[in-house]
């Protein structure tokens, strides 16, 4: 499984995004991170060809949240056959926006001295959860009431290995903030908020039902003015709470 970082959100283990056989010997694996407000794409490039690779560059297609490289792809020396290099590519969210299907799809082009290669990957939405995503309590209540019921989506998260306290602190390290907490008939109810880099707010009610001593069942209700993000926010909750 992946690793949590000291001051950042959950980081998935690197996955192969471009197999060598599809890219004339260039293999790319990677993952996404968010640490203290900085998003990066952490890449591992391996040369499985018989010739040296040079002149690397990377470009993203337009995407739903304007993710774009914030610097050129820096491969400091030619990549020899069988050599691997690790690169952290800083990203920003001020690139061109085009709604993708699925919403978190990212199309990438990488070039080197041999050719240009293309691949697609999906990024976890929690890399877009900003540090100032804690909504004021009064604003939360007003917004919760204001967002119509048809914009509410409900999800189940079964067998979560954390209690209410740990759930709240784990989520906070990924910029999902608990605005209020209540206990009703033995269930903890957390009211939470998060904000995406493009300013979209998501409000959540997380109902925590004690299961057996080591697991809890969670019911997540999400309210958002852009309800197409809810499915991806739910996936972020699952990932953060189960890893």
């Amino acid at each position: 499984s992946g690793v949590g970082t000291l001051s950042g959100s959950y980081v998935a283990p690197k996955a192969i995004w471009l197999p060598a056989m599809k890219a004339k010997g260039l293999e790319i694996s990677g993952t996404f991170t968010r640490q203290v407000g900085s998003i990066s794409m952490d890449l591992q490039l391996t040369n499985k060809a018989l010739q040296v690779m040079t002149d690397f560059a990377i470009q993203f297609n337009r995407n739903s949240f304007g993710l774009a490289p914030a610097a050129p792809l820096q491969v400091h020396a030619p990549l020899s056959p069988n050599q691997t290099v690790e690169i952290s590519l800083p990203l920003n969210t001020v690139g061109s926006v085009m709604k993708m299907e699925p919403l978190n799809n990212l199309q990438v082009a990488v070039k080197n001295n041999i050719d240009v290669f293309y691949f697609s990957t999906l990024y976890p939405l929690h890399i877009l959860f900003v540090e100032d995503g804690k909504m004021d309590r009064q604003m939360f209540l007003a917004t919760w009431k204001d967002i119509p019921n048809e914009n509410e989506a409900q999800f189940q998260i079964r067998d979560c290995p954390l209690n209410a306290e740990a759930v709240s602190s784990r989520l906070q390290s990924s910029n999902i903030f608990t605005v209020a907490k209540r206990n009703v008939e033995g269930q903890d109810m957390l009211y939470q908020s998060l904000k995406l880099t493009n300013g979209i707010w998501v409000l959540a009610e997380l109902r925590i039902q004690p299961g057996n001593p080591s697991f809890t069942h969670l019911q997540l209700s999400l309210k958002c003015r852009a309800p197409e993000v809810s499915q991806h926010v739910y996936q972020a909750y699952e990932t953060i709470l189960k890893n």
Binding site: V184, M189, R207
Partner: peptide
């Protein structure tokens, strides 16, 4: 502590969601 009524409002919200 100044009671701004918000504590009570959250209690009512949680209550209404549990017993609609």
């Amino acid at each position: 502590e100044l009671d701004d009524g918000l504590d009570e409002a959250f209690s009512r919200l949680a209550q209404s969601r549990t017993n609609p």
